[in-house]
Amino acid sequence: MNGANATTTGESPEAQVSLHELTRRFGDFTAVDRVTLDVARGEIFGFLGPNGAGKSTTIRMLCGILPPSSGSGTVAGYDIATQSEQIKNQIGYMSQKFSLYEELTVEENIDFYSGIYRIPAGKKAERKEWVIEMAGLAEQRGTRAQALSGGWKQRLALGCAVLHEPPIVFLDEPTSGVDPISRRSFWELIYRLSGEGVTIFVTTHYMEEAECCDRLGFIFGGELIALGTPAELKAGFPGQIVEIGCERPFELLQRVESLPGVKSSALFGAGLHLAVENAEQTIAAIGRELPDLDLRMERITPSLEDLFVSFMQAQGRAASS
């Protein structure tokens, strides 16, 4: 497992986003605790963590709308503490609320941001058509934003956020509350932007979305606890995963938790996933201990969700001991 601080320490010339010991406190509460990471140009960086872990606070600091308590960071080469106004020209930002003006039509929303970003007169029409085409809103040009479905709102919000062709885009849980099909087409847009060289910094708690990222950072309790590509993170998983298919997974959960060699366990679909030191030994042990049950047991490659669960349980134990 790569420690958060071992991989990168900022200052890479290619880095579009670079954080060093970035910290934000609200009174006694530390929302973001000494986070250090780099994001390279054109990369899709996924920022993962449970609710309240500090994802949105980090993004707000990077966008220059929340000053850091300590530590430093640069976005597109500008200092987040002192050059937030320059940063604002370089970034697009979209929050989980899809902050559109509900009373305004699709076109009026685009026109508003196009004026705010001072898109040159000659380019305005072209950018507007680009957004409408990208978001698939040709039929809804004159529809008020309040009448759009979640997926359309989300694509329009993204369109407005990248209207001025920013080199870096921050997306704060952009797919929350949107149906899976819209979510997939949204990710196609993200790939398209990334292919054009745009750096994407996205927070999510959907694991299938995390798989789509070039690199991931896990944040928990304000601390960055893991950093790397999905493959690196899985390869670095400390131990093995046993999947158990059974009738009453919840009852079984309590019985297998105490077995030696089981480091963490969680309900997973219709069964259980156990993080163990040695899969063969655990499978054999369960077979011996619970011979009466008809269990389907198998060693599998850890998924990101397994990683996520075991990180969180490990942190939880560390915190309580």
């Binding site: 966008c63 220059g64 604002k88 930002y93 979209m94 609320k97 902050s99 559109l100 003006y101 970003y117």
Partner: peptide
Amino acid sequence: EIGTIEQVIVTPI
């Protein structure tokens, strides 16, 4: 309240 201000203050306005 609606959150649009968050979107506006990240622009250079």
